[in-house]
Nucleic acid binder design. Structure first.
Lengths: 227, 227
DNA sequence: GTAATTAGATAGTATTGCTATCATTTTTAA
DNA sequence: TTAAAAATGATAGCAATACTATCTAATTAC
């Protein structure tokens, strides 16, 4: 069983909301597959159109270009992880426990039961790991930012930051730690698979648990230490 | 005054060594300018050829494609930072002091006097900040890695890792911390300018010093804490 | 001074990244 | 229910990108 809830995304991300039509959902579904398999560079709207048996022109009616589609996908992920964290920390009182759940969500939220039938969260997480930073490493980052296209990420970081402040109000860099936990989770999952010398996570089935353990180890030292 | 020393780079990075000819050095010099100004996405060999008053075919005789040129540039940076750290820590005994110099080098090595006349280290650092991770976030990362195209980065991380182990032999993730310090330095310089909500570094003239202070703060807690 | 290397000039080709137009199908609203 | 509106499909086209190839001219090396 899967329930189709709606994820709320900045409408500057798309021309026409892909969530409300069959074709739109197809675009999302298949573009995740294709970017997951062959990477963002080789992905084109023409190839996508062919895969979903539609036309290039139709895809362009939903997204201005493939950069906007990538932004849509990563925003989707940011929103989704944020929502999961909200749900899973709802009854938790201890901020340290909250932070543990946050770390777990950053590393392996995609192992949760899927929320939306046409989005494969596990593949999407892999896209965020491999292509996520390309969403802001562009020449138009400031323009994109002023349109609110990174709001979901900033909200997520804001939320985590406030938990960090609960754990240790005197920690001086809560936002930096929050964004770094997110980036580190993704980086070290990537490194363990492709560039193992850049990490200490061994490439194994349980590298997710290892990354989770590492991030908790870092956080413990950073927040429970009076040095 | 500037002295032209030679940086030693894996010869898989290029077809013909750009360091040994006027045209080659011109390619490096001008491509740094252009990528710095307009970003890697809009950079093409045709535009570059026009700028240096040469031809596309000539540029292709040095580099297989623009991805290899980017790899060349980031390798150049990794080697250069590594060399600077070697020089500046040569007479330092205390590993904690060494780590301080490493952090300073990650953040602002480019403020040192330039080493090679046709490479603007400050612009190059900005390229590494904005485009560096694109060098390994590709579908061919494993192939590139097996050719040794990330060796300079891995060496750098290995070197920093051994200093970390000197400071605290029981720290469990020295390689991860080393690569994270490098990435964090770059990320937070970028965030402070473009996405300030993701960091606690204020956008000011002295954001480099602030990032340096932050990284030292993190390292202190991580390595001098028995929690 | 000749051979070898390097660079310039030019051309060509498949693919990318769009935009535009018109015809059809599907949806919606009176 | 039917006419209008909206969405999609079909097709075309075009400038730019990412190369490859070939031939000639200049430079350098022996």
């Amino acid at each position: 069983m899967s329930i189709d809830i709606r994820i709320n995304l900045n409408n500057e991300l798309y021309i026409k909301d892909p969530q409300i039509s069959k074709l739109g959902r197809n675009i999302i579904h298949k573009s995740i597959d294709m970017i997951y398999l062959a990477g963002f560079e080789s992905f084109t709207f023409r190839k996508l159109a062919k895969e979903i048996q539609s036309t290039e022109a139709s895809v362009y009616r939903y997204f201005k270009n493939k950069h906007m589609l990538l932004l849509y996908l990563v925003n989707w992920y940011w929103e989704w992880v944020g929502a999961l964290i909200e749900i899973n920390t709802l009854n938790i009182k201890d901020p340290k426990d909250k932070l543990g759940i946050i770390i777990q969500s950053f590393v392996s939220a995609s192992n949760q039961n899927p929320v939306i039938s046409y989005v494969d969260e596990s593949k999407l997480h892999n896209i965020v790991i491999a292509e996520g930073t390309k969403s802001y490493h562009t020449i138009q980052v400031d323009k994109d930012n002023s349109k609110g296209l990174f709001k979901s990420y900033k909200n997520l970081v804001g939320m985590v930051s406030s938990v960090i402040k609960e754990v240790n109000p005197s920690f001086e860099y809560p936002n930096a730690l929050a964004s770094n936990l997110f980036e580190m989770a993704n980086n070290h999952l990537f490194f363990s698979e492709h560039l193992p010398k850049l990490t200490n996570i061994k490439q194994k089935k349980n590298n997710e648990q290892e990354v989770e353990r590492m991030l908790n180890y870092f956080v413990d030292k950073l927040l429970s230490c009076s040095v």
